[in-house]
Computed example of a mutant assay.
Amino acid sequence: MAARPLAAVHSFEALLLHPLLYLLVAHSVVGQLLLGLAMQRGSTTAAVAAMDAAGAVPAAIIGLLFLGDQIWPGREWLAMVGFLVTLAAVIGLTRYAEPQHHHEVAAVRQRRTVRLHHPVPAARR
């Protein structure tokens, strides 16, 4: 959303002084960090689907409500179908996405570490 007003800036100096430029950069950095954390904790597919939907849906709503964007007359149903399909796809991908294999490797490695630090007594072998 910050990129739309920045497109109207006509000089490089004004762009560098515009607070929305720094908001856009900070938003991008924080978004990438959060995406990286989401990918570490769960499915990459679900994380990217949620990221795409979180970027597209609120921007469309803000554009319609506050920035004067319009849906072509008679095509409102298409916008609603697109929103519902996006929502259903994100929920479906989040629900049914398979976790990455590195989670299994990490669990096995953790069990090995516990065994090495707490060996089984000789009487129990």
Rank of each mutant, 00 (worst) to 15 (best):
H18C: 08
L34A: 04
S43G: 00
L37A: 12
P58E: 14
D52P: 08
L16V: 07
T45G: 10
V29F: 04
T45E: 08
A54I: 11
G31C: 08
H18V: 10
L35Y: 09
G31S: 12
L33W: 13
L24M: 08
T44E: 13
M51A: 15
V30Q: 00
V29T: 05
L33C: 10
A38R: 03
S28I: 02
L21K: 03
M51C: 10
A59W: 09
G42D: 01
A38M: 08
H27P: 02
H18F: 05
R41Y: 13
A47D: 05
L17Q: 15
G36W: 13
L34H: 04
L33D: 09
Q40P: 01
L17T: 14
A38L: 09
A54F: 13
L21Y: 03
A47F: 03
A49C: 09
A49T: 09
L17N: 15
Y22M: 01
A47W: 01
L20C: 05
S43F: 00
T44W: 11
Q32T: 14
A47T: 02
L23G: 05
L23P: 05
A53H: 07
G55Q: 11
L23W: 07
L17F: 11
S43H: 03
L17G: 15
L33R: 09
A59P: 06
S28H: 06
H27E: 13
V48T: 13
V29Y: 05
A46R: 03
A38Q: 01
A49V: 09
Q40E: 11
T44H: 11
G55L: 12
A54L: 15
L21N: 02
L33Q: 10
L35F: 11
H27R: 03
L20P: 00
L17S: 15
M51Q: 12
L24E: 10
L21M: 05
L37G: 01
V25L: 02
L20W: 04
L35Q: 09
P19V: 02
L20Q: 11
H27V: 07
A59G: 12
A54H: 06
V30L: 11
A46D: 07
A47C: 02
V25K: 00
L23Q: 05
V29L: 12
Q32E: 13
A50D: 02
A38I: 00
L37Y: 10
V48H: 02
A47S: 11
A49E: 10
H18L: 07
G55H: 07
M51I: 10
D52F: 15
S43K: 01
M51D: 13
L35P: 04
